[in-house]
């Protein structure tokens, strides 16, 4: 496993970047124990000019570095938890639709399409508007907009795999449907689900930032999106307030996409064969 990861530079780079961001998130309460919203120095200090805040301060004198570290916690948490929810729902719906086919498939896919026809971002905003802005609402809204993609992928994988002879062989020995679905077919679909999940996490993180930017996020926690939103009035004279969280978002999205691509390469049999 380790050798496979090292040989694949896309995967190694992606995982390294992701580990770095995770480390930032984990160390936030230790390095910046206070409230990241608290004022800690003079406002609008450019990065490197004020000793207490290496990344500078914003218009209210808040430490940008503290915001980046604490924001990493929120971004990763929102991204991974919402996608985990989407995976649970999407895998269940996709697996049953793909395995059983017929009216089960028709019914489940009509519901899935219903969710897909509504623009994702609007749907997320509506859900938050109903539930009130909180971190839970953000996670649920992002989960709701992501699961149809998972369901469709899982369904198409199952449609192919259920016709493979090894699945027939399991039916012939009398294995129960649930066991065939979860113990036989699903493990064979996991690699493509993982690839998609990593990209979905990136999308969810970006979408969370967009929601926070527009003020639909939880007002009590700081996120990269909130920071960009708060900094937009200083765009001309203090662009670093937006650029730094923007860069953090970019690196995170890039890391997740690299991981996805890397896994895809690693499981592509033709590429793998060339290495023998």
């Amino acid at each position: 496993m380790m050798r496979l990861i090292l040989r694949n530079w896309t995967l190694s780079l992606g995982l390294a970047l992701l580990a770095l961001i995770l480390l930032m998130a984990l160390s936030a309460p230790i390095l910046y124990p206070g409230d990241p919203y608290a004022m800690m120095g003079p406002p609008l200090q450019w990065p490197g000019t004020y000793p207490g805040a290496p990344l500078g301060t914003d218009s209210l004198g808040r430490d940008i570095a503290a915001g980046i570290f604490h924001g990493a916690r929120v971004s990763l948490m929102v991204g991974f938890v919402s996608v985990a929810c989407a995976l649970v729902v999407g895998i269940l719906v996709g697996a049953f639709a793909g395995y059983y086919g017929g009216w089960v498939d028709d019914a489940l896919m009509r519901i899935t399409e219903l969710f897909q026809t509504i623009p994702q971002f609007m749907l997320a905003i509506v859900i938050i508007a109903i539930m009130g802005p909180s971190i839970q609402a953000v996670i649920i809204s992002l989960g709701v907009v992501s699961w149809p993609t998972v369901a469709r992928l899982v369904r198409s994988e199952f449609l192919v795999l259920r016709e493979r002879a090894f699945v027939h062989s399991c039916i012939v020995i009398g294995m129960s449907d649930l066991r065939i679905i979860f113990a036989q077919i699903l493990p064979n679909a996991l690699s493509s689900i993982t690839v998609m999940a990593s990209v979905l996490v990136a999308t969810a993180i970006l979408m969370e930032s967009a929601l926070s930017f527009l003020g639909f996020g939880d007002p009590n926690v700081i996120t990269w999106g909130t920071m960009i939103g708060l900094g937009r009035s200083q765009l001309r004279d203090a662009w670093y307030i937006i650029a730094i969280p923007g860069l953090a978002l970019l690196v995170t999205a890039l890391a997740l996409n690299l991981v996805g691509e890397g896994i895809n390469d690693a499981m592509n049999p033709r590429l793998r064969k060339r290495k023998i």
Binding site: F166, H168, S169
Partner: peptide, 25 residues
């Protein structure tokens, strides 16, 4: 399928394609 289970042991199958008839995992 459930009702067939008790009869399953009596009738088994050997498949054509040895490459797809075994779960690769």
């Amino acid at each position: 399928r459930r009702a067939m289970r008790p009869f399953r042991p009596d009738v088994q199958c050997v498949f054509q394609d040895p490459f797809s008839s075994l779960n690769p995992r």
